[in-house]
Computed example of a mutant assay.
Amino acid sequence: MTIRWGILGTGEIARLVADDLALLPDAALTAVGSRAQQRADAFGDTFDVPRRHGSYEALVSDPDLDVIHVATPHSAHLKHATMALEAGHAVLCEKPLALNAAQAGRLIETARRQDQFLMEAMWTRFLPVMDDVHRLVHEEQALGDVHLLRADIGVTQPFDPDHRLFDPALGGGALLDLGVYPMAFAFDLFGPPAAISSSAVLGETGVDEQCAAIFRYDDGTQAVWHASVRADAGRTCVLAGAEGRLHGTRSWWKGAPFELTRRDGTTDSWARPYAGNGYQFEAAHVMTCLREGRTESPVMPLDESHALLRTTDALRAEWGVTYPQES
């Protein structure tokens, strides 16, 4: 059964997803929607998309789609995902699911009321290497009881007040764009934290350009993470327990090697390279869910996406970071 996809938006993420859908023989990129017909046509020409819509409203009104990928900025996720759900489409919505927990709650309520599939596109959770991580940590307990996760992610983005990373009206800042990845990693392995300590550096537009947090759990586990749009933080991760540690080397989510060091000093190293950009794995999962008649993913459930945004809300409240839509 071929699943017919529509992409709402024509930016960078939309292009990466379009590339990767072409890697799935049972996925058909059928339609694209943009705010301008010219951009929709250019995107369609590049990715061989037969149906090009010059508005988002026209895209969600297209009856020949099974699922729509919402690829617009954070600040528009609630509006655009709601449009698609109310038009009767399943939705894969870029992360974060919404700007804040209140918006996420409204979106989740809409999906459940419409009895439509909705999932946050936390693509890193579906990468092949995550199967290895779960197997070693939970099934084989190769690390013993895990007590520490450390994860860093950063980019060096030149300051531009109009760039989405620095624009509060677009949900800019390191937290929602980058910090959600190590947060979701911690949630995946340990669940929501019992307590949080954090710090942020705010830029001249008022968004967090650098942030760090320690998640503490009732059993004493800590998840320590850092995100930055000012510094290349290495993009590495470490999971450690009494019996050993797992080290994800630079760009581990792109298939770079993972290293297992055991308590006795023996080591193993392996890589899980893949073609494309890595978005095909979450897309394949969505298609499996749709074929099984699911309205929610068992791997990235909506309640977890909601809890993640409650945590980002708490962090931003501590830092004094707000978005215009919240005032």
Rank of each mutant, 00 (worst) to 15 (best):
Asp64Gly: 12
Gln103Pro: 00
His77Cys: 10
Pro73Asn: 06
Glu86Pro: 05
Asp132Leu: 04
Ala71Ser: 12
Ala81Asn: 13
Ala142Cys: 11
Thr124His: 14
Ala31Trp: 04
Ala58Gln: 06
His138Val: 07
Arg125Leu: 07
Gln103Tyr: 01
Thr82Ile: 02
Met119Leu: 08
Glu139Gly: 07
Ile108Phe: 02
Met83Leu: 13
Leu65Arg: 03
Ala102Leu: 13
Ser75Glu: 15
Gln103Ile: 02
Met119Asp: 15
Pro96Cys: 09
Trp123Glu: 06
Phe47Arg: 02
His69Lys: 07
Glu86Ile: 13
Glu139Pro: 05
Pro50His: 02
Ala98Tyr: 02
Ala40Gln: 01
Glu140Asp: 06
Leu143Arg: 11
Glu139Asn: 10
Leu78Ala: 03
Ala71Gly: 05
Leu107Trp: 10
Met130Trp: 12
Ala111Thr: 04
Lys95Thr: 12
Phe126Leu: 07
Arg106Trp: 11
Leu99Gly: 14
Ala142Gly: 07
Ala31Leu: 10
Val91Ile: 11
Thr30Val: 13
Met83Arg: 13
Ala87Lys: 00
Phe126Met: 13
Val60Ala: 14
Ala40Thr: 03
Gly33Thr: 03
Asp26Arg: 06
Glu109Leu: 14
Asn100Glu: 09
Leu29Gln: 01
Ala111Ile: 05
His138Leu: 13
Ala90Phe: 01
Asp45Asn: 15
Gln114Asn: 06
Glu57Ile: 04
Ala101Asp: 10
Gly88Thr: 04
Arg112Pro: 01
Asp62Asn: 05
Gly54Leu: 12
Thr46Gly: 08
Val133His: 10
Met130Val: 06
Asp132Gly: 14
Val70Asp: 04
Glu57Met: 05
Thr110Phe: 00
Ala121Thr: 04
Ala40Met: 02
Ala40Lys: 00
